[in-house]
């Protein structure tokens, strides 16, 4: 038993747990359990599985000769994928690049915020609540409106650019408006709460006595953070990065409002324009499908790498 437990990976631990759940009480609970997940399964089937199949089918449609714009017939044209990949791989890559940058920035900005609120201000419920409200309050206004506001903030005549130029942190002729910087900044801002909240929830549950034990065992504040707080908060970080990265990779609002038409276009914009303006449904569907599968692969690799440790 011991040696098996010793060498096992988190996945095995999961199996063990599943196995433990499966015997004994499981039989009594089984039927009720299925009953409870039933509505969820139906929902998933109708609103996720079926649309994915429709999407897949649409991505293979072809335009018959002489058809009007937006007219397609069912087919199995896998060439659609080659066409859109060949045409839009830079946008695809850029989307993941921007999303990754925004996720890293969100983590760098968001972790300390979550740590401050959950750990440092523990026991001071009022300040904690106040900071959480400050964090979330901007999100009561519309996504589009907030992004428009960022446009003002980053504008050439805005206080930020003026200040940076005064401090010589930015060349005189330069501009933030309609640049990649602006798009990543917008993404970071818009997805920050999705990073902070899961980490906050995780750190909030951190047992303060563990930190005391760490300090008692000769760990300085930094060491205690590195060896105890951070490893224990990995599930929160994992959730936060996923909640940030996934929607950010498919986002088109930030790039559309804060970017330009040359070098900030994200794949979401391409899909949007193909679907809404050019009416190239198979192309839009193929790109959507590629985006979905790529995210799925990336996330799987990521969770494999960081999420399989037997987390608390």
């Amino acid at each position: 038993m011991t040696s098996r437990v010793a060498g096992r990976s988190g996945r095995q631990a999961g199996f063990e747990r599943a196995a433990a759940l499966a015997d004994g009480t499981a039989q009594a609970r089984g039927r009720a359990g299925y009953g409870l997940v039933g509505p969820g399964l139906v929902y998933l089937l109708v609103f996720f599985v079926l649309p994915v199949f429709t999407l897949l089918a649409t991505s293979l449609y072809v335009k018959p000769p002489g058809a009007e714009v937006g007219q397609f017939v069912p087919a199995l044209e896998f060439g659609n994928y080659a066409v859109v990949l060949g045409g839009y791989w830079p946008e695809l890559l850029r989307s993941f690049g921007f999303a990754l940058l925004a996720t890293v920035l969100c983590l760098v900005i968001g972790y300390p915020m979550a740590y401050l609120i959950a750990v440092r201000l523990r026991g001071r419920a009022f300040v904690q609540g106040l900071l959480l409200v400050l964090l979330i309050a901007p999100f009561f206004t519309s996504f589009v409106l907030r992004t428009q506001a960022w446009k003002q903030i980053l504008a050439d005549e805005g206080f930020l650019v003026q200040a940076l130029k005064t401090l010589h942190l930015m060349p005189q002729g330069a501009s933030l408006a309609a640049t990649s910087v602006a798009v990543v900044a917008g993404l970071t801002y818009n997805f920050l709460p999705f990073m902070v909240l899961p980490i906050y929830a995780n750190l909030q549950a951190l047992d303060h006595r563990l930190l005391e034990a760490g300090r008692d065992l000769y760990g300085s504040d930094l060491t205690v953070f590195r060896t105890i707080t951070l490893p224990i908060s990995v599930p929160g970080v994992l959730a936060g990065t996923l909640l940030t990265f996934i929607p950010a990779s498919g986002d088109f609002v930030n790039a559309a409002i804060l970017g330009n038409n040359r070098n900030t276009t994200m794949i979401g914009q391409v899909i949007d324009s193909k679907f809404m303006r050019v009416l190239d449904y198979p192309g839009a569907a193929a790109l959507s499908f590629i985006l979905m599968v790529t995210i799925l692969v990336l996330v799987t690799l990521y969770v494999r790498r960081f999420g399989t440790r037997d987390l608390v």
């Binding site: 006595r209 563990l210 008692d216 105890i228 224990i232 608390v312």
Partner: peptide
């Protein structure tokens, strides 16, 4: 040696 053990769970 803590009354609550305070063992590091991870």
């Amino acid at each position: 040696v803590f009354q609550s053990y305070a063992l590091f769970p991870h």
